[in-house]
């Protein structure tokens, strides 16, 4: 059911992705605030098929030189490319004080036993400002291989960025800043260098009182 309806290819599927802040020492969900969240653990045939976006519409929002989105897309495979529009939830009741943990967790699954490399590039005006590269090994569980990046600490740049964003008085100002803020995640098979997933993230601030929202698109080139 997930094919065509969620982020994944026959080789690797995203199960969950979240960026959060948490009061340390009390790791129950009550003290955890999710800035963004994707959960694809229960795909259903009733879920709508993904819409598509022409990848050329967003080239300049991501690195354009060597290893940039254009080059990655041309190399393919095209079915591994996705765009996520996040409406991030900045309405946190957790006070920002020492001891707050800022983290990112993600989980992927596959029918193959691989070692994966996940690169996350934070970009400002399309230029990379920081990159984190993580390597994950498979764990066999319930008949499939799971890759879990658990509570990876958010970088200083992102924490400062969130702080500054929250200080802006109006949502339209935040959205204006977010227009030039993007993240590109590339997951590759470490041993074969095959591209498994490429996810481009763009952002607005959520106006909902029900937490973060998102739309997922396939990236295509007609």
């Amino acid at each position: 059911a997930w094919q065509g309806r969620s982020i994944g290819t026959p080789k690797l599927r995203l199960v969950e992705f979240m960026a959060f802040m948490e009061q340390q020492g009390e790791p129950d969900a009550y003290n955890k605030h999710l800035y963004v969240h994707i959960s694809q653990s229960n795909p259903s045939y009733s879920d709508a098929l993904l819409e598509s976006v022409d990848v050329r519409q967003i080239y300049d929002k991501f690195p354009e030189k060597k290893g940039g989105l254009k080059e990655l897309y041309e190399k393919g495979p095209p079915n591994a490319f996705f765009l996520v529009k996040f409406w991030a939830d900045l309405n946190t009741s957790i006070q920002d004080e020492p001891g707050i943990f800022y983290g990112v967790s993600s989980q992927y699954e596959s029918s193959e036993n691989m070692t994966i490399t996940c690169s996350s590039k934070v970009c400002s005006f399309g230029k990379q400002v920081v990159e984190k590269v993580e390597t994950e090994y498979a764990r066999f569980e319930n008949g499939r291989f799971l890759y879990r990046i658990h509570r990876s600490p958010m970088c200083e740049y992102l924490i400062n960025f969130i702080h500054k964003l929250k200080q802006l008085p109006e949502k339209y100002m935040m959205n204006s800043v977010l227009e030039n803020f993007t993240i590109l995640q590339v997951v590759t098979n470490r041993d074969t260098q095959e591209l498994l997933l490429c996810i481009a993230y763009v952002f607005e601030v959520s106006t909902s009182e029900h937490g973060a929202q998102h739309h997922i698109y396939r990236l295509v080139k007609d």
Binding site: E51, V53, D54, Q57, I58, D60, K61, K85, W87, F125, G126, K127, E179, N180, V202, E204, S206, T207, S208, H210, G211, Q213, H214, H215, Y217
Partner: peptide, 24 residues
């Protein structure tokens, strides 16, 4: 720096790109 970017609103993006989903 880069030349001025085209605002996202002026790009060919699906209408849903500007519609925050309702919570399920």
């Amino acid at each position: 720096g880069k030349p001025d970017q085209v605002p996202m609103r002026n790009r060919q993006l699906p209408p849903s790109f500007w519609e925050e989903p309702r919570p399920s």
